[in-house]
Amino acid sequence: MNPSHASNGAPTVAMVAGEASGDLLAGLLLGGVHQRWPEAVAQGIGGPQMAKQGFQAWWPHHKLAVHGFSWELLKRYREIVGIRRQLGDRLLADKPDVFIGVDAPDFNLDLEARLKGQGVKTVHFVCPSIWAWRPERVEKIRRSTDHVLCIFPFEPELLAAHGIAATYVGHPLANVIPMESDKATARRALGLDDDDAVVAILPGSRQSEIRHLALRFFRAAARVQSARPATKFIVPCVPGLLPEIETLALKSGMQGRLQLLTGQSHTALAACDVTLIASGTATLEAALFKRPMVIGYHMAWLSWQIMRRKRLQPWVGLPNILCKRFVVPELLQEAATPEALAREVLAWLDARDTDPAKIAALHATFTTLHATLQRDTATLAADAIEKVLQA
């Protein structure tokens, strides 16, 4: 047992979160850990949301953020593997009471397997989407982790069938995002009028996503504005990517017509009528804000070919996966043209004005989804972690 755990009853917790969405989830989880163990020490790889909870970051989380399978990953492979090896060495030299890998399964599961093999308790937060693609991962999960904290209700039963202990803890974002958001207040904060038609553009939180998606999203916005000149566009940006986004806005001809925000993605989603959004965790956030959306995604050709062959379901966007039907449109790869994206955005804006029943039906669907995901995540996660520590 780690001396710090023995001396004051508080565990030492090592964690890795690999990108902005993982940092957000990990920050929420750390809130529950510190409620249970105020003196707990947490350290490893993380970002600003974790830092707010007193997390000691040995490497910043963006070091692990990669997109797809092809040239970018090959270029970064040696660096990422080196970080994982160094982190593993450091943790084995001074073992924590528990290691919690937050998402980033390609990085975390191998690290967890190494630590578990040397007697460190391991927890994985967010079940890898074996129900959507790459089902072969289930054996690696079993080898790597003592317990999985699941954010979707159907996952523990699926894992139990493979002999993997798991707990449904709800989705942390379902408690952070209110059941009914205040659109008027969000609009005032952004200088928007109540009757404005507002589109939030979220092209992703990773540099590679920005490079693949931002320009086509901005060109789609230009087509929307051509059809509806009064439309306002708001773009929440990861601070470090703002210069690149500004360059792409200029290239698209939309410079000065896009309101670029530093962060503030939740304010943007609360304020908008519809969002043009990259597939990923942000689509679930948009659903929890009950906003109509158009999901787009594009990646390198080789990455797409690999992912397409490993898909198990017809949906990619989380709202569609969880509802088990296409409640919002998805435009992927070759289908994600500026013209097609603009057409779907315009359809939602037209529905806002002429078909309120369509908007209300989507709102009801997302309200039911929100209630399903709303649990006391911090307490349930701390309960599960405590059981792992006591085992």
Rank of each mutant, 00 (worst) to 15 (best):
R187V: 05
A132N: 11
L190V: 05
I201Y: 10
R257L: 13
E209D: 05
M299C: 03
D110V: 02
V224M: 11
P292R: 04
R223Y: 02
T337A: 09
P229A: 10
I177L: 10
S265E: 04
H370D: 07
G47Y: 06
R257S: 13
H124S: 03
L92H: 07
T275G: 07
P203Q: 00
K232S: 11
A221K: 00
F218M: 07
T354L: 10
E39C: 09
Q313I: 15
T12I: 07
Q264H: 08
K140E: 12
P135E: 01
D376G: 11
A361Y: 14
P319H: 07
Q49F: 14
H171F: 12
T122I: 08
G46T: 02
I321D: 03
N108L: 00
T122Y: 08
A378Y: 09
D273Q: 04
P314V: 11
A166P: 09
R311F: 07
R114V: 06
L269E: 01
H62A: 11
V169K: 00
E339V: 13
C323L: 15
L109F: 10
A10W: 00
D193V: 00
S265N: 03
V33Q: 04
I151S: 03
C127Y: 02
A360M: 12
L276E: 08
E155G: 08
E72N: 05
Q264N: 06
V224S: 08
R325W: 12
G68C: 09
S7L: 14
P338M: 09
K310E: 13
R343T: 15
T367W: 03
R76C: 10
E136A: 13
R137M: 06
R211M: 13
F99T: 02
V66L: 07
K290R: 15
R78H: 14
T231S: 09
G22F: 03
V16A: 00
G68K: 07
Q313H: 14
L341C: 05
C237F: 02
I80E: 02
S21P: 05
W304P: 06
